[in-house]
Design a binder for these strands. Sequence first.
DNA 1: CTGAAAGCGCTTACAG
DNA 2: CTGAAAGCGCTTACAG
Lengths: 333, 333
Amino acid sequence: MIRNVTMQDIADRLGVSKVTVSKALTNKDGVGEELREKIKKLAMEMGYRYNSNAKSVKAGISYNIGVISPEKFSGPISFYMSFYQSISKVLEQKNYSAILHILTSKDEKELQLPRAYNECKVDGFIVLGQIENNYIEILRDIDIPIVFLDFYDQHEDIDSVITDNFYGAYTITNYLVKNGHRDIAYVGNIYATSSIQDRYLGYIKSLLEHRIPVRDDYIINDRNDSGVLIDAVLPEKMPTAFVCNCDQVAYKLIGRLKAEGYKIPDDCSVVGFDNDIYATLCEPNLTTIQVNVKEMTRLAVEIIIKKIKKNQKVYGRVPVRGEIIFRESVKPL
Amino acid sequence: MIRNVTMQDIADRLGVSKVTVSKALTNKDGVGEELREKIKKLAMEMGYRYNSNAKSVKAGISYNIGVISPEKFSGPISFYMSFYQSISKVLEQKNYSAILHILTSKDEKELQLPRAYNECKVDGFIVLGQIENNYIEILRDIDIPIVFLDFYDQHEDIDSVITDNFYGAYTITNYLVKNGHRDIAYVGNIYATSSIQDRYLGYIKSLLEHRIPVRDDYIINDRNDSGVLIDAVLPEKMPTAFVCNCDQVAYKLIGRLKAEGYKIPDDCSVVGFDNDIYATLCEPNLTTIQVNVKEMTRLAVEIIIKKIKKNQKVYGRVPVRGEIIFRESVKPL
DNA sequence: CTGAAAGCGCTTACAG
DNA sequence: CTGAAAGCGCTTACAG
């Protein structure tokens, strides 16, 4: 491979200094317009490529952001990959690049920091998906900016961008009430994750606001404590609507209800959360809450870049509201 | 943020030169064992992080690989994201990092090269998913190594790692024949993509080998030329088995067959390809071909790194065989 | 085994 | 508007 052309090469050909070339190519003051154009034109012709590594050495900034995502959330249908893609696009617009670091369970246990950190390859980290507490601790001790995406933890000083689970479940339950439902069950293990818990609380708030009594037998478990989905135990007195903590569980529930002879939504309405592939695989298609991936990543990127630029403000937990996607799984009573 | 500690800082504290520190930390010859250990220990204590940017400037190597994936293949359930994750993991082991570049349709049309290239941020590109011919042309003209992953094109001089579609369809059709099937249809628009076409040819080879006549009405179209799935036209005389070009189409077909009163696999056997989410969403679960993502990415990475190290050999098309995943959608006759 | 010198490609003051 | 000098943090010869 031939040596790349450098600013010096351009300078030599034009009989000017590399300082002038640098100014011209990076659009800084201190070059005549005419000369600038001449330099840019020649750079093109010579196939010049800017060496961002050289800049990084001087500036101490790599213009890369690391995205740490725990291995356990990876896989071909990983919800988080759409986040990552979105991050990559948004960073691109800001002239940053995204380096994905899949955190293996081993490294997570052994508190091994990403190589990208040890080699100064990134200026900050976006952590995509819940990681273990000990790992959070070592990330906090590190001297580069961090933002959590789609989860948070009790430390007030760590910034995070999250889905407004509470509000989402609240609005979709309100929607059911508005459609005449009063016997509404919630499907989800309310101790399993903070998402499920927060969604549950949004559901409860809606019931409270509408003076609908909360029934214990309407809180239906969907998974064991290891997160493995289990068959739901349906209540004796069937509700007219189910608020499921996610689309996959709604999908599963509908299969079950159909098998028992219920027509959806004629006999029971069902709503989900996430608007993922299960929402449209379902027959009927699910009314659900769409997580606003675009807005969430936009915010996460904005925050991390501000922090890199030494804006040491604490943003805390930033909730992003999703929106209801109306489909065919709800029947007005 | 405080200035990072450098090799010079360590050298000063120990009263040695930074050259010695460099040798010690990068495990090169030319330092006494004792001194080396002392240096390493102090580096740890001082929280030293190696600055790979500085090395990159000297070496002219970034230790980053760009992964170009066309926007049209992105999305939350993108098959390609599992490839990307795997690439990221494999590169990690080789001390490289992966930078994802989602190629927008606009940039693809306008032949805009990735910024990572223009800024010397990557040493090579893995192209993940079919891109337009004109774009292939400009990538060829570039002076950095390129490998195509999961597709190929007519240029013999471009290396690519692909699924052995032909062989996969051949083996799964053989499996049907071995189970007593002779009336076997193929479902797929054989002009739509080279994958569908190659899988079709594997199916044909199996029929030929077993002296089973090829029937025109057993080639069933599944999509229009824009790739939008359409309802299949079932042949007058129903086959006993269907080889579908992908799991999604198998999933769709099974829904259709069930709706018409057929029992699967009792009345008809159905097989798919890909082993993606549709394979297990299906009732019954699909017998299908699993693409060997791990092996494919391992090879792609191996090839690109060899090429970066100036090993200018041409590898050409490297096919990787998948394996049959046996499930419940096939009945022996 | 150890290190002074020069260099990678760029940028940042500063002087003219 | 233009550029000589010094520097970013490392490595590569080479000399001792």
